[in-house]
Structures are given as structure tokens and as C-alpha cells.
Design a binder for these strands. Structure first.
Lengths: 220, 220
DNA sequence: ATTACTAGTAAGCGAGTAT
DNA sequence: TATACTCGCTTACTAGTAA
């Protein structure tokens, strides 16, 4: 979504086009966003094409209303500004259950990890992680979480292999306690790994594609 | 301010650059906003030039922090989204006292207006209006206010002249009660007219250029 | 590794204007 | 009145690469 289209959509929303149809001409909109009538017209066409607004062209002006898709787009923007200015000590993320590549199980079976989890998180993790695919927009939240003081699980060597350190945060998934695990050395991924004392797929009757809600607790 | 620069600034803020300096490379930022390294670099140069961010270029990556100006810019965006999704029954506007062209006094001395003000607003306005110049960004709020059910003051004729109808909203200026007056037939102006039972310039010791805070009360 | 310049290409803009 | 097309001009983009 181009930045100028979001700006235009926001202007239309400020005029009240989320609740009602608003009557406005392209020239009025062009004055509002300080551009030409032609550009305002083009923006409206683009927003219409993307399904962000509906239009009823009359002989004079046009009736414009923002669609659910358009509203969702603006809400995602709003969420980002809330994160910037209104952040509290909890972060809410929703995502979709997906199958991992089996690495999670391997990791959570390492005795050195298990010891640290028990000591620092106060629970013994069930072998394996539950992988949650989060929306692109929500990746911002993960980046932000990473800035906070995490519970650190140190790296260690086992025979010839090095197991990297991870950052953990206490979290809940559908109200079941556990933690999220973020590898220290990794790019921002859209997969969140959740560990818990329970076999979550069974306890929560989860299958791939199910949507779940996660709350991450930040320490400070 | 170009839309893409605000978007970039928001992304940097999401990484925590309002509180602290963050260490990030142009290529990491380019991945985040889905563009090339060169474009991300150019955006940073533009933001720096506008005084929105400060940068410390090292041999590797760069330390970026958002300036007060940058923060203010983002807060204005945030305010707009709050207006869209969190609107309550009060609207807060700040502005600067300016001198009008003397028309306000003429209007508020018309007996027909005075009668209506007394009946509908429950106070007798002091002759003249206090003119408040609002920032461009705040004009959105006025547009929104206009969508609400106002207290209507009807138009009337006096000899050969027609006095147009106005919309009023109960309001407070620096905690002194009164009302704002919006001409029904007018384009969106950046001047807000405030009426009150008192001579506000004296009561509040106001002179041109002073900043004041206004609260507008919406009926529903 | 980085940042950011150059230059060629693509996208966006708005005056004029058809509808 | 409107909206929105064409087209010449400007701005923005990125591959290549210097520093």
C-alpha cells in the first residue's frame, strides 16, 4: 500500500467516511491534501480499485464511503501509532498455528536448555515449540519486544554443535501460560515460537491454520 | 511533509528511536519498508535535512534518534487516528490569539443574534468574538465538529442585509465557558471564533500571539 | 562492512481538455 | 458544473559502484 494512498484514506476518514457516505468533490479533496484536482481524482480511482472505498458518482460531486478493508488498513496504522505512544507492559498479538520444521523439538530436548528454562522461567517445557505465524504488520511488535529486557537463555556447546542464546518473555496463549522464545541471532521472522509446560496442540485442540491470541508480558 | 517520509519516520519510531538511539543500517530499514537500500538511505538523508532525526555515522551501521520535531510530527499523525477511532464527546484544540477584522463585534451586536444566543446558549455574549488561529493540522478537527449536531442560530434579515446562520458548540477557553461559532456557509477556515459572556482579552489577559487551549463539547 | 553518488529508467504530477 | 483522460515534465527509484 503506497504511503500517499494511506494518507488520502486517512483524510477521507477524518471527514467521517467510515460511518457514513460523504459527499465531496475531487477538488475539495485536492485542497485538503494540497494537491491538484487530477491527482485527487487519480488517488480516488486507485483506492477504489484496491477496494478501500466505494463511490457513487453523481452529476455533482460523489458519495464516498470507506469499506471494511479500508477501515482495517487504517486501524493497522492506528495500532502502530498506539504502539509508539501508548505502549503498556503487555503486547497482544494474534496469529495462525503452523507446523515447524521440527527444530523446536530438538532444541527443547537439550538438557542444557531445559535446565535454564526451569531455572529462569519456572517451568519445564513440553518438548517442541508451537509455531505461530503472525501477520506482517504484527512483526513490528516483535521488533519492539526485542528492545525490552528479556529473560536470557545462554548459548552452549554440545559436542561439536553450538546452540545459540535465546531471549524469552513470559506469555499466554489462549490464557495458557508459557513463554515466547526469540533466537538472539536471527532476522525478524514472521514465526513466533511458543513454549509451555503442556502439549498445547492437544490441550487447546489446535490444528494448523487455527487462529490464536497471544499476550506477551514485558518486564519493565 | 511527504507521505513516504512520515511512513519511514514511523518505522524508525517503532524500532524505539524516540527514547533511545538505535543502531540500524540502511539495508535493514529498506527490508522493513520493502524498498532498496539506496532509497532507504535517501529517506534518511531527507529526514535528517528536515531535522526529524539525528544521525551518527559509524564505520558500520548508524545510530539514529528521532528529534522533538520528528516526535511532534508523529504525534500529530497519532492524533488524527485517535480522532478517527477513539473520538469522544470532547475535542481539544489549541491555537493562537489573533485580531479579527472587526466583523465579530458587528455580528454579536445584532439584537436578533443576541436573542438567539441567550435562548439557545443560555448566556449573553460580550460584543465581539475572540479569534483563534489554529494550526493547519487541527483544521481536521473542525471539519469533524461540523458533522455533529450543532446548536443552530438561524439566519435573519435586518433592513437590506442578510445575516447568515451559524452553528454553535458549547466550549471552554482556558476553562472559561463560552461557545465556538462556525458560519454555516463558509469554507473551512483556520480561524475559530469564540464567544463568551466575558471580555476574554481582559479576563484572561490575552494579547495577540498568545496560545490558548479550547475544549469543544459535542452534543452526541 | 557500510553510506551514498551517478545515471538511466520508471512512476507520479498537473495543465489542458474531452466527456 | 463534475470526473478523468492525454501527454509533456518532474520526481522518485534502483543498479552499479566509489569512498
Amino acid at each position: 500500500m503506497k504511503a500517499y494512498l494511506i494518507q488520502m484514506l486517512k483524510e477521507i476518514a477524518l471527514l467521517g467516511a467510515i460511518r457514513d457516505k460523504i459527499e465531496i468533490s475531487s477538488i475539495e479533496l485536492s485542497n485538503q491534501i494540497d494537491t491538484s484536482q487530477q491527482t485527487a481524482s487519480r488517488y480516488l480511482l486507485e483506492l477504489d480499485k484496491k477496494g478501500m472505498i466505494t463511490r457513487e458518482l453523481g452529476i455533482k460531486k460523489q458519495l464516498i464511503q470507506i469499506t471494511d478493508l479500508g477501515k482495517t488498513t487504517l486501524q493497522e496504522e492506528h495500532l502502530q501509532y498506539q504502539q509508539i505512544f501508548e505502549l503498556t507492559n503487555r503486547i497482544y498479538i494474534s496469529g495462525k498455528v503452523v507446523s515447524g520444521i521440527g527444530e523446536g523439538s530438538y532444541y527443547t530436548e537439550q538438557i542444557n536448555y531445559i535446565k535454564q528454562f526451569q531455572e529462569k522461567l519456572k517451568f519445564k517445557p513440553f518438548p517442541g515449540t508451537l509455531n505461530i505465524e503472525i501477520k506482517h504488520i504484527e512483526k513490528n511488535k516483535i521488533r519492539l519486544v526485542k528492545k525490552y529486557n528479556a529473560i536470557l537463555i545462554n548459548e552452549f556447546k554440545n559436542n561439536n554443535r553450538t546452540f545459540g542464546g535465546v531471549k524469552c518473555f513470559h506469555a499466554k496463549i489462549e490464557n495458557i501460560k508459557g513463554a515466547i522464545v526469540l533466537p538472539i541471532r536471527s532476522h525478524y521472522s514472521n514465526i513466533l515460537e511458543f513454549i509451555s509446560p503442556y502439549f498445547l496442540r492437544k490441550k487447546l485442540k489446535l490444528k494448523d491454520g487455527d487462529f490464536v491470541k497471544i499476550i506477551i508480558f514485558l518486564k519493565n
